[in-house]
Design a protein around this nucleic acid. Structure first.
Length: 542
RNA sequence: GGCCCCUUGGUCAAGCGGUUAAGACGUAGCCCUCUCAAGGCUAAAUCAUGGGUUCGAUUCCCGUAGGGGUCACCA
């Protein structure tokens, strides 16, 4: 009885790995092309950190002529939720992340290197596990939870490292025939790596973001295949990324400490180790301390949050790109109209320390992004957002022609478009007065009787067809007639000479029209409201 | 606790042996302006700490502190 017999007892009916090695050929890609992959569990939840990784994955693939894969890591049944894959795909699609290859719906996929859902790759994992067993590089382990606990306690009592290694790896040297007997008796078991590593030897791993990292070799007989027959992450990662020809693994920094194991596994098979880019987490500041942004505590950890708030996905991506490569900001300034995909992302320029998520900065980025949209684009975005999240706004926007005029204020014919919108959820409040007449008026320091006089005078000379210059001169005329300074500058030089200046007069008109003291350009507002509405609103004061 | 990673203004950060230590967001002030949003200008604000190495350290090395990660039949 040898390892081969053992392997045959455990996995009698699987194909040899040569079959898969033959099936998944080397990709025909340009020199230097990167194959990247985003590999979430089907929890239905996309974390902002996941989006961050996707941006890197896609950028690397795109700028090198490579491939961006979406793979689903569903080897843990506990993590699975109904339609989790679909939800992830949809969430990513909202940010224009359409993978080149991999899952495209709950059950469908595209590409030649699948299946792209790990639960459907069981046979493949078994083939590779079998190969390792035949080589004596893996073995069945029958340790019960109680045994494992016992070992751990002994190790702790002795002040040693915990885990299955060296003499502690209880079933590592179990004779083959005994193992076979136990298996035939139906005993539950896992497959563990028979590690060759030594803790007193160092290995150096290159990380594309951090440079070289040195650690002790892995010497743990890590579990490869669980008792349920599904692989553990480490094993699936090695098999999948080898077979899918991944060239660079972008993943969170929590994986750094397991790379020695991964390297050992790649070496055990004789496979080429991919590059690793282990990226920092996005942090949240709380009570002066920084911590990883959390799914449970922080709503902004979920990418859906941004969609609900109406923060354009372009803005979120640009903000994240800022964190990935801070030179992006300068590039954007120099290339205001280029697509984000034209920016050349460089892993070596990436920050390594983990950035605190800054919502204020995001909103600022968002203002700039929105300022570049045309009235029609704004309309389409707002409309789509309102349809889902604000029925009242959606109804308000039914008259598209009018809405386009409203969104065109200080936008459409302006070289310096207004920058006051940061998210679609701000829209209603910022345009409501274009749809509803003011309910109350507050003229600030101007008494109501004076306000009425202003309106009365103004109504006499108001003409819808005036151009902006004439329009403004008429307001100045009203100011002068009522004894207010015609120019703000004059007023500032001798404030005691007048009760106020032209600005106060226009404030009266503004409040009468909109109920607000602060609005965008009043001339444009009046043009959009139209002659009749302007006159009606003004008369209402009287 | 072992191992590993990280540490420049409030935040994101440039820097890669000699700099007045960029820039952006935010904050404050001024200018512009019919108000606001912008825009322009200006200001305050940073190299965690102790040792080395060096003519010279933010930069290189070591220690310390602080933060984070990891030590699962979870990813």
């Amino acid at each position: 009885m040898d390892y081969k017999d053992l392997a045959n007892v455990i996995y009698p009916d699987v194909k040899p790995i040569e079959y898969y090695e033959e099936k998944y050929r080397v990709r025909e890609l340009p020199q230097g092309a990167e194959v990247t992959r985003f590999a979430p569990s089907p929890t239905g939840f996309v974390h902002i950190g996941g989006l961050y990784q996707c941006i890197i994955d896609r950028a690397l693939a795109k700028q090198t002529g490579g491939v961006f894969i979406l793979r689903i890591e569903d080897t843990d049944q506990k993590r699975k939720i109904e339609n989790g894959v679909e939800q992830i795909i949809n969430a990513l699609a909202k940010f224009d992340f359409i993978p080149d290859e991999g899952m495209i719906s709950e059950k469908e996929e595209k590409g030649e290197y699948g299946p792209y859902k790990q639960s459907e790759r069981k046979d493949i994992y078994h083939s590779y596990a079998k190969y390792l067993i035949e080589q004596g590089k893996a073995y069945p382990c029958f340790a019960t939870p109680e045994e494992i606990e016992e070992i751990r306690k002994k190790q702790e009592a002795a002040g040693l490292r915990t885990g299955f290694y060296g003499v502690w790896a209880k079933y590592r040297n179990l004779p083959v025939d005994e193992a076979i007997n136990r298996i035939k008796n139906g005993e539950s078991f896992v497959i563990r790596l028979r590690s060759n590593g030594r803790e007193d030897r160092k290995i150096k791993v290159k990380d594309s973001v951090r440079g070289h990292i040195e650690f002790p070799e892995n010497d743990q007989d890590a579990v490869l295949i669980k008792a349920d027959g599904l692989p553990v992450y480490h094993f699936a990662h090695v098999v999948d990324d080898h077979l899918m020809k991944t060239t660079i693994v972008v993943r969170g920094e929590e994986w750094i400490s397991s790379t020695p194991l991964h390297v050992e596994l790649f070496n055990a098979f004789g496979f080429k180790v991919p590059k690793y880019a282990q990226v920092p987490n996005i942090l949240k500041e709380e009570d002066g301390k920084k911590r990883k942004i959390s799914k449970r505590k922080d709503p902004e950890a979920a990418v859906d949050y941004y969609h609900e708030e109406g923060i354009p996905s372009d803005a979120v991506c640009e903000y994240l790109m800022n964190i990935i490569n801070s030179s992006f900001e300068g590039w954007r300034r120099a290339n205001p109209d280029k697509d984000i995909s034209e920016f050349k992302l460089e892993l070596s320029k990436m920050g390594v320390s983990g950035a605190v998520f800054d919502m204020v900065k995001l909103l600022d980025v968002s203002k700039n992004v929105i300022a570049k949209y045309s009235a029609k684009e704004v309309y389409d975005f707002v409309n789509a957002w309102a349809k889902e999240y604000d029925k009242e706004l959606f109804e308000m926007l039914k008259d598209e022609e009018y809405a386009l005029k409203v969104f065109g204020i200080e936008r459409e014919n302006s070289k310096k478009p207004r920058k006051d919108l940061a998210k679609w959820s701000d829209v209603k409040n910022s345009i409501i007065y274009m749809y509803e007449r003011p309910k109350e008026y507050d003229f600030d320091k101007i008494p109501l009787t004076d306000a009425k006089k202003v309106i009365e005078e103004y109504l006499n000379i108001y003409d819808y067809n005036d151009d902006k210059q004439v329009w403004f001169n008429k307001i100045k005329d009203v100011a002068e007639k009522l004894g207010y300074a015609r120019e703000v500058k004059e007023y500032k030089q001798n404030p005691e000479k007048w009760p106020g200046h032209v600005g106060d007069i226009s404030t009266v008109i503004r409040v009468a029209l909109t109920g607000r003291r602060n609005t965008p350009d009043m001339y444009e507002i009046m043009q959009v409201l139209g002659k009749e509405e302007v006159e009606n609103r003004l008369r209402k004061i009287m």
